[in-house]
Amino acid sequence: MKAEEVIRETSRILTKLFDVTATKDWANCTARADVVVDGRTILAEVPVTYLLFLEKQLVDLHTFVRKLPALDAAETWNYDASADCFATEPVQTLRTRKVPRNHVKAEATEKHPAQVEVYHEDVTVGYWRTVKFSGALPASRINELLDRLEKLQAAIKFAREDANGTEVEDRKVGERVLGYLFG
């Protein structure tokens, strides 16, 4: 094997790689598209590289929104402006305590003591009002955010595909770079 032949073959192979990469990178500088959601342009003339970045970020945002806490559907929630969160209607409960009481079954006589049975009676100790507070979101709000996010993801994917369809000019730089290097 001769070193000059290896250099020529390596140059031939690398020339194709350098040309394809240059063409792609130059095209990414000029390929642009608009991000349109529901007929409204959200972003105009966005470069492909930024569209790729947005696609990846929106995947993370989708996970974030899915993990947002939702209000318990078993409760009725209303927004409380003074607490700046959601609150339930007050629920009144009471607390009781068992108090022993005596029940005389038979009165005492000269010959027999009284027959008494001890039982426990529930006596109210106090009343409590419970209001639950939550900073979680209603499920409808989470679903709205997910719907908007999915629409934006679809619009960005469409814009990226549109930008990738841009006509490009083949760049021939590999021969010059490698010609200089090995020439």
Results as ranks from 00 to 15, higher is better:
residue 136 A to I: 05
residue 118 V to P: 10
residue 129 R to M: 10
residue 157 K to A: 10
residue 65 V to D: 01
residue 158 F to A: 15
residue 61 L to V: 00
residue 107 E to D: 10
residue 61 L to Y: 03
residue 51 L to G: 00
residue 43 L to R: 14
residue 31 A to H: 05
residue 96 T to E: 14
residue 108 A to L: 11
residue 43 L to C: 10
residue 93 T to N: 14
residue 115 Q to W: 10
residue 65 V to S: 01
residue 101 R to D: 13
residue 44 A to W: 00
residue 85 C to F: 04
residue 89 E to G: 07
residue 135 G to H: 07
residue 102 N to R: 15
residue 67 K to E: 08
residue 94 L to K: 11
residue 52 L to K: 05
residue 104 V to L: 10
residue 108 A to V: 09
residue 136 A to N: 12
residue 125 V to N: 08
residue 154 A to D: 15
residue 111 K to P: 00
residue 123 V to T: 14
residue 120 H to G: 01
residue 66 R to V: 01
residue 114 A to M: 09
residue 50 Y to K: 14
residue 103 H to N: 09
residue 153 Q to V: 02
residue 81 A to P: 01
residue 106 A to V: 10
residue 127 Y to I: 08
residue 110 E to A: 12
residue 102 N to Q: 13
residue 121 E to G: 07
residue 52 L to G: 02
residue 144 E to R: 02
residue 53 F to H: 13
residue 62 H to E: 05
residue 144 E to W: 02
residue 107 E to L: 10
residue 110 E to R: 07
residue 146 L to F: 03
residue 119 Y to C: 08
residue 66 R to S: 03
residue 122 D to Y: 05
residue 46 V to G: 03
residue 100 P to N: 08
residue 126 G to P: 02
residue 147 D to E: 09
residue 117 E to L: 09
residue 74 A to Q: 11
residue 34 D to T: 05
residue 153 Q to L: 00
residue 130 T to K: 09
residue 127 Y to N: 15
residue 127 Y to T: 14
residue 157 K to S: 12
residue 65 V to Y: 02
residue 54 L to C: 08
residue 85 C to D: 02
residue 44 A to Q: 15
residue 72 D to T: 03
residue 120 H to R: 12
residue 136 A to K: 02
residue 99 V to E: 15
residue 57 Q to N: 05
residue 121 E to S: 09
residue 50 Y to H: 12
residue 89 E to N: 12
residue 72 D to W: 04
residue 149 L to Y: 05
residue 134 S to I: 03
residue 33 A to T: 07
residue 156 I to T: 06
residue 49 T to P: 01
residue 75 E to N: 06
residue 76 T to D: 13
residue 63 T to Q: 00
residue 112 H to P: 02
residue 94 L to E: 14
residue 133 F to Y: 14
residue 40 R to H: 14
residue 80 D to M: 04
residue 152 L to C: 02
residue 30 T to S: 08
residue 103 H to V: 08
residue 62 H to W: 03
residue 47 P to N: 05
residue 153 Q to C: 03
residue 156 I to D: 01
residue 158 F to V: 11
residue 121 E to T: 09
residue 32 R to V: 13
residue 93 T to H: 08
